[in-house]
Amino acid sequence: MSGAILSRPGRVALSPRLLAGILLVLLALVPAALRLLLGGVDPLEQDLMALNLPPGDGHPLGTDHLGRDVLARLSAGTALTLGTGAGGALLAAGLGGALGLLALSLGGVVRGVAFAAFDLLRVLPGVLLALLTAVALGQGGGPVMLALGLSFAPLFAEVARATHEREMAADYVAAARVFGLGRLAVLARHVLPNLAGPMVTLFAIVLPRCIVTESVLSFLGLGVSPDQPSWGRMIADASGYAEDAPHAVLAPMLALSALTLGLSLLGEHARRRFDPLARERRP
């Protein structure tokens, strides 16, 4: 057990893992921050006289096979990568959590059908889902987010179901129902407060997975349109020239690794903070 669990709320003990997480995420965001503050060159501008240049004058991270500035593309791609991933995770939480809870409180056939659908979604590979959404809605950020949302929603629905079942079996819920409180009141008073912690935790765990998945989809060409610089796209584009210009592959790879590792560490911290065993101990 780390010190963080025993700390009082509002006073977060800075464990080495938490510090590492924060630093890694900040590091991954440095290019985007620099671009915001100082401005930068156009990430789409091609300089055919400067293909696959190593890091150096004018191009701090070099150029890629089309002579585009890697740093510019990296910083411009941050928002897209993070945004699509976060959007997908949010959508998953919304779909899984809200629809799951709705189905649970309606009960009966609705519940059975809804959870059968969630199970069906879970067995479909994410790539297949992305292919389907891309075919149906075309390429772009929206379809990718939808694919991410759909493939991660079952996780949130399962967590909602587990919490719901545990709470509904509790004596204090029986007591509430004896006082004539309806399903919705019980849901709001007893289930939701106990669900918030696990949901936040799961979100923190799913977010980095969504970001990686988005990059994988972009790498496979199922992601956002090719002219938009997402990190996955950058890795895909530059991987053909890895021998001539390793920097063009390494830069987005390292950024992606730092961001997801950092977010995972933060997610782990969130999980510990909301751990039901730790919760009892906090005043």
């Binding site: 509790a170 004596d171 204090y172 029986a174 007591a175 006082f179 409180l181 008073r189 009892e280």
Partner: peptide
Amino acid sequence: ASLNPRASVAQVLAEALA
């Protein structure tokens, strides 16, 4: 088991009057 560990005594009692 019959008192929600998250609720204060005031909240527990308020439920009877909800």
